[in-house]
Amino acid sequence: MTTATTRPARRRRHGPASDSPSEAAPIRTRALTKRYGERIAVDALDLEVHAGEIFGLLGQNGAGKTTTILMLLGLTEPSGGSARVVGLDPTRHPLEVKRRVGYLPDSVGFYGSMTGRANLRYTARLNGLVEEEAEEHIALALEQVGLTDRADSRTDTYSRGMLQRLGIADALLKDPDVLILDEPTASIDPIGIAEILGLLRRLVRERGMTVLLSSHLLDQVQSICDRVGIFAHGKLIGVGTVPELATTFGDGAAHLEATFLDGTTDPAGALREVPGVEAAERDADSGTWRIVVRPATESVRVREAIIDLGAKRALRMTSLRELEPSLEDIYRTAVAGMTRGFAVEEVTA
């Protein structure tokens, strides 16, 4: 794969009148709820995905990601609340929604006795694409996911990752406005992942597509998603950009990393003297210094102070940078907080 270009943006199609035409958000839910018997899979979810963004859904197994996605597509009836996808209610206008939303299910499957291309041809026909046009779309989609050379083998000879790629091609075939991908990079090799994430970014940039994806791979989500929603027990416990989430779930500290040339005087004492520095410790393996700044808002001033200090005390500092908050840490804190919250509720109940 591929630098295959995406299709140019095209005219909007007109479907049934959307309930609020001025509403720009391609995906929006209000108190969306799904119950399976006693168990609440999705609990009064308020979610909004903006046009032209890549939104990542995070959450542990059973958090309700897949259930939410199925409700957005009208494949599962909500027990309560409402959803609007491309401005339409998926339970009332399922056809129009499904015409404009591409979906990659988790553990996607294909008809094993048919070739990859024949499988896509079936999807194209179900979407009302006519012959030559369908063939062009299929060829482009296969090219985009890097499957052109295996397109004419039966899909029961495909590896799991190849099926996953074919699934993405399948979702792209209808040239959707919104792409919903349930764990899109599962079983795909690292280079393939980079390619697919690149493709998604290009689709968003060139076609103005909106992407909602769920994943367990946090660094991927961090690298590609404009905004992230963290799910736990059917509830959205945090939503925003990674720095925003860091402010919400962080411990209020910023982290700096500094390196000094060997043989210089121990900088620990000097570093700890800087106002705002809470701790400074040397990592024995890498030899770098980790500096904790609290409150996080002091980090710029502290950095300046450390540079001054380096010059004054001849500390021979070679680098100083602020560590970006990792989504993994945020996620851990958020989920742990949620679980703690639950434990407390259970005790008091």
Binding site: L73, P94, L95, Y103, P105, L126
Partner: peptide, 9 residues
């Protein structure tokens, strides 16, 4: 799921 996510009833 893939089949039912196409625009058919």
């Amino acid at each position: 799921p893939r089949l039912l996510s196409q625009p058919i009833y």
